[in-house]
Design a protein around this nucleic acid. Structure first.
Lengths: 347, 347
DNA sequence: CTGTTAGCGCCTTCAG
DNA sequence: CTGAAGGCGCTAACAG
């Protein structure tokens, strides 16, 4: 003797059909916005739906259409700001496209992911999957997806850039522009903090940095290129290595904002004025860039736009229903943002 | 003439049954871990499943069981750090419990949400919904959910704390402890920056602050209590109002870390040493607390634990299947974290 | 433009 | 312990 636990289990398509004096099929057509339904009939159906407070059951729809209308985001919590931007862009576009977004994370290593992805896909029936960095470059994940035949888009991948649909940005060029900007300010002693080697972006950004210096004919100094891992802590170590002693750079280009924040912190500790004695620049324009004093000169990476585009590409590919056409690659460019953390070098 | 687009549409329960020489029903039993299946039979089924690379179809399962195995997180992007912590806790617990997590956001005002929630619920069939702050206190959302009969848990609600299952924390007490800590350091001139009035936590935290001062017999100064909205920008304004002029507090307690970061920024700009001339404390212990120099003394709010607990409560309630029992309220306490941004007042 | 028929893949119910 | 029948709610694929 169980009362209906909730109203979710309410009217069905049949009830609506009956009430509107049509067949279930016609209701289904109205539901799916198909055109060949007489306007008057449509009206009647719509009204019946309203009267009965009808809510279609997705499970049934999914079963019949062999689609789940769920997209999966497989992510790896690199950086809260990044993820949260990703989500913003995705959710909006998903809603527009009539999909839902489910998110899954997993262990942090590539191998952890191999199993995890399989498990997830086994129990979720995602229509497609979105792979942000660094997951987009985990071979095990891509293999698993391909083996299971699940369509996916990659965001900012490094490898096989055009083997699969993806959304890319111009990290390399942006890093070069940023470096040029520092050169134009008059800096010649410029340090660089590398990103996580697991992320393709780290190599791109470094390449851009090196290219700009080379074009300007400025020699690199090894001790001014420090490893980092895109984390604040790694930035602290890198900054300390670079800034202790008197023979220090007059500007530091950190591969992301969090590490740039660390540089600012170390500068503060050493009593160096930013930007008076040390210019600092970041990359990404995440929230930390503006939650800092002085605010960071950085490169705005349009994360939300990129993630929105990824949903776009994926859903369109799904609508096309597996008919192969060209793999879509969309470039969304970065933008240089000048704020208070940079200035000409001290005289 | 369409080839099978992907392997998702692979073996069904029937195929497995046939291969194992049993009925589909038996396979279903194995699948659902029911006990009354002979071990040998079970083995045979399991093997057949492996051989055929069988993956159950959730849509079908959901349809038959009238459950979706999806939980919805209705959120409002207040603060990236907060959200990202929420997600971490939820996803882990969801996986353990065999659920998936779908996220939806919407406009930012209460009224926007009324429609949005309905739309979402109409097209998603979530088994239950999780409401973090401030959404947990939007009447329109709660009404919509109740009207549709969708179970939900609230995280850190302010209103009707025990009308529905929820996970709460001791904001008030923690804020009081923090204030006491400042008093014990010797501060008597303490400023406070309020949080967003839309969040219940902001009132709790202020109440704790006031209580501690009252117990210590210290009079409040109106100009040292400034409004804020939990954003960095609002913190800047508040800090500027509080710190300009010579008659300034020796310590500022900001209702969250982002606003505390703003206080540090303003102090830097004014040439005030933190913590030498000004102690600053935050609340939440989000990433910004440690991405700052000096690192913030703050209150750690165990967000991930709270969100994990919320999934726990919700899934257990779902397993019980609507039979009403006591509404579960779980308290997860905060913790005071002392770091570098506080020190005794200057002599 | 609309209706009929026949499932989608799994699970509930009731027999054995 | 296992199986057979039927249905969950919706939608292809045909007919008209």
């Amino acid at each position: 003797m169980r009362t209906r636990a909730n109203k979710q289990s309410g009217a069905t398509i049949k009830d609506v059909a009956e009430r509107a004096g049509v067949s279930a099929m016609t209701v289904s057509r109205v539901l799916n916005g198909e055109s060949r339904v007489r306007d008057e009939t449509r009206e009647r159906v719509l009204e019946a739906m309203k009267e009965l407070d009808y809510r279609p059951n997705i499970s049934a729809r999914s079963l019949a259409k062999a689609r789940s209308f769920f997209l999966g985001l497989l992510y790896n919590n690199p950086n809260p700001g990044y993820v949260s931007e990703l989500l913003v862009g995705m959710m909006n576009r998903c809603r527009q496209a009539g999909y839902h977004l489910a998110i899954e994370d997993s262990g942090s290593t590539d191998s952890h992911w191999a199993n995890a992805v399989e498990m997830v896909l086994r129990t979720s029936n995602f229509d497609g999957v979105i792979l942000p960095p660094p997951v987009c470059d985990f071979p095990s994940v891509r293999n698993a997806l391909e083996e299971m035949g699940v369509p996916y888009v990659r965001i900012a991948p490094e490898q096989d850039r055009d083997a699969q649909p993806s959304v890319i940005t111009d990290d390399r060029e942006a890093a070069e522009r940023m470096t040029q900007y520092l050169l134009e300010l008059g800096h010649t002693r410029i340090g660089f903090i590398q990103g996580d080697t697991e992320h393709g972006s780290s190599r791109q950004r470094e390449a851009g940095f090196r290219a700009a210096l080379e074009k300007a004919g400025i020699a690199l100094r090894d001790e001014w290129i420090q490893p980092g891992r895109y984390t604040y802590r790694s930035g602290l170590v890198a900054a300390e290595n670079m800034l202790r002693g008197d023979d220090r750079p007059s500007a530091v280009f950190a591969s992301n904002d969090d590490m740039a924040a660390a540089v600012v912190a170390v500068a503060n500790k050493l009593g160096l004025d930013v930007p008076g004695q040390l210019s600092v620049t970041g990359f990404d324009d995440t929230q930390t860039a503006t939650t800092l004093w002085p605010q960071l000169t950085t490169v705005r990476q349009p994360i939300a736009e990129m993630s929105a585009a990824s949903v776009d590409i994926l859903t369109r590919a799904l609508e096309r229903g597996g008919e192969d056409s060209d793999v879509e690659i969309r470039l969304i460019p970065c933008e240089l943002i000048v704020r208070g953390s940079t200035a000409p070098p001290a005289a």
